[in-house]
């Protein structure tokens, strides 16, 4: 009897332990004020102070580095009256419209074709070589062709962003399917799933971590392509604003534009990371 009791407690111990572990994990994510966060904030404060001091004591010309106050002022000005008659929010809106149209199209098609190519070697034989060829080209190189085909307006930009975002999307979705554990697939078939159900209920969710890597990589790719494209050709947008300001030596506008671009890119990436944590909570724990 004694032996039996021992066995039972031994059996129950790991079961009781578990909820504690779960709580601990939750706490970890809530802990925001880590020492590292403090260091990061201090670093940014220091950069700000140096920036302030350098400009306050006129160590460099304001044309090269405008003071924080001037940049802040031009931010307020562009926000209310606009740059060359176009308010900042309209620039941001124009840029985002182009970015998201190309990006969403690329995400849908890239994921679908990538998954299909990962699954079937015959579909892969069609799309993989094309992607492999054009993804090595700098987007601005084929932008020239796109301008000839689609004009200088938004269409050529959306197509350009679509292409820039499509390649990483396609490649990671394809890798996602190829990296699904054999046991996952064999297990599904063994439990009574057919090929189609195995794809839908197992291969697709198992590829999600890779798909999210693709979503984030292609966001970076299309965002940087967007700014470059607006610089080459355009009459609105953040990229255009910055390049236009440089022609008139408006360093304050350039600095302001760069900071806004950086903040937007952080917001975009954080949004995707947030979605990733919500949709693929098992990533890295498996």
């Amino acid at each position: 009897m004694v032996q039996q009791n021992e066995l039972q407690t031994a059996k129950e111990q790991p079961l009781n332990k578990l909820p504690v572990n779960l709580k601990r994990n939750k706490k970890k994510s809530l802990k925001f004020w880590k020492i590292e966060t403090l260091i990061t904030i201090t670093t940014f404060l220091l950069i700000g102070i140096i920036w302030f001091l350098v400009t306050e004591f006129k160590m460099v010309s304001p044309l090269i580095v405008p003071s924080p106050a001037i940049v802040l002022h031009s931010f307020q000005e562009v926000l209310s009256t606009g740059y060359k008659g176009i308010p900042l929010l309209v620039h941001v809106f124009d840029s985002m419209k182009r970015l998201l149209s190309g990006y969403v199209l690329a995400a849908i098609l890239g994921v679908l074709l990538g998954l299909a190519s990962g699954y079937s070697s015959k579909i892969r034989a069609v799309f993989d070589p094309i992607v492999e060829f054009y993804q090595s080209l700098p987007p601005l190189a084929y932008y020239t062709v796109l301008i000839i085909w689609f004009g200088i307006g938004d269409v050529s930009k959306v197509v350009l962003l679509f292409l820039a975002a499509f390649a990483p999307m396609f490649i990671s979705s394809m890798a996602g399917v190829k990296n699904v554990k054999t046991e996952y697939i064999q297990g599904a078939l063994n439990l009574g799933a057919n090929q189609w159900k195995t794809f839908y209920y197992v291969i697709l969710p198992a590829s999600l971590p890779f798909i999210f890597t693709g979503l984030r990589t292609s966001m970076v790719a299309s965002y940087s392509t967007l700014v470059a494209a607006e610089m080459v050709a355009g009459a609105s947008g953040l990229g255009w604003m910055v390049i236009d300001a440089s022609r008139f030596l408006r360093s304050d506008i350039i600095f302001m534009g760069l900071i806004v671009m950086g903040i937007i890119s952080i917001i975009l990436d954080r949004t995707l990371r947030f979605a990733e944590v919500k949709i693929v909570p098992w990533k890295g724990k498996d």
Binding site: N190, L191, G192, P205, W282, K285
Partner: peptide
């Protein structure tokens, strides 16, 4: 062919984490 009539338990559980 692979069939549910022969249920397999793998060395690693291979459960679906989603």
């Amino acid at each position: 062919s692979i069939d549910w009539n022969r249920g397999v338990v793998f060395q690693q559980a291979a459960l679906y984490p989603w």
